[in-house]
């Protein structure tokens, strides 16, 4: 049931960095960027975040919006009418493959699935819903991609595709920013100001992503960030690392 609140508390829970969904162990590619010397201060962090938001951020937000739309429209048939096809290639499996196709780096795929598994665990505990069950069944073994779970969880609490996109776009920069505070000892106030400066861009990316929620999945944004992909691969082989990705 849609919430009458402009800022529903369920949604705040989903966007909260304290949500126990494993995000604290991932840096969104920031740790290898620091190791490579590409991010050294607040200015270079801000540039990194802008790039990440415009590429990986838009792709993830669009996938989340599409997932939320899919979960909402599937759920319209009503409980007990979930077909086995939901788990197969015409349902969640296909959207999951679209996410795979937009994630060329195996390390990033595995990081996305690890976070998807963790989020699915807490989402099913907090907002039980047939779509989350179908998503779990469709990705047995390796876990669904992270943005798909954000979308389905948003649908499970009665949220909209636009809200799923907003939570996702926001998360693609806040996780990396918090990792920068830990890795570089940056002033947290300056880092938060940098995030505040990005707020309008985050909203714009979310709106762009949400506008495509009900379109064909093949047409979802497929922007790449080759340097982030390469960082993800070198990071996985690095001997010293604090973050999983």
């Amino acid at each position: 049931m849609p919430s009458p609140s402009a800022l529903p508390a369920h949604l705040l829970l989903l966007a909260d960095s304290r949500l126990p969904a494993g995000g604290h162990a991932h840096s969104g590619g920031l740790e290898p960027a620091v190791a490579a010397g590409a991010v050294t201060d607040v200015a270079s962090l801000a540039a990194f975040l802008r790039g990440r938001l415009a590429t990986a951020g838009l792709v993830a937000a669009a996938l989340a919006a599409a997932s939320c739309h899919h979960a909402t429209t599937r759920a319209d048939v009503g409980e007990g009418h979930t077909t086995p096809g939901d788990a197969g290639p015409d349902g969640w499996g296909l959207l999951d493959a679209e996410a795979d196709a937009r994630t060329p780096s195996p390390a990033q795929r595995s990081a996305s699935r690890a976070q998807g598994r963790s989020l699915l665990r807490v989402a099913r505990a907090t907002w039980p819903h047939p779509s989350l069950d179908a998503l779990a069944a469709g990705a047995a073994g390796h876990g669904p991609h992270h943005p798909l779970v954000i979308g389905a969880a948003t649908a499970a609490m009665g949220g909209t595709a636009a809200q799923a996109a907003a939570v996702t776009a926001y998360g693609t920069v806040t996780g990396a920013a918090s990792a920068a505070v830990r890795l570089l000892g940056l002033d947290p106030l300056s880092v938060n100001r940098a995030l505040g400066t990005l707020a309008a861009r985050i909203d714009a990316v979310a709106a762009d992503a949400a506008a495509r929620a009900d379109g064909p999945w093949a047409g979802l944004p497929a922007l790449t960030a080759p340097q982030l992909d390469l960082y993800a691969e070198t990071h996985r082989k690095a001997e010293l690392r604090l973050f999983e990705s």
Binding site: P20, G22, A25, A114, S118, R121, A179, R182, L183, E244
Partner: peptide, 21 residues
């Protein structure tokens, strides 16, 4: 082996998902 993102106590207390996994 589980990596803890610079916060060992978070991984065993506040957000145990990687360990549960």
């Amino acid at each position: 082996a589980v990596r803890t993102g610079a916060c060992p106590h978070t991984a065993i207390r506040d957000d145990i998902s990687a360990n549960l996994d």
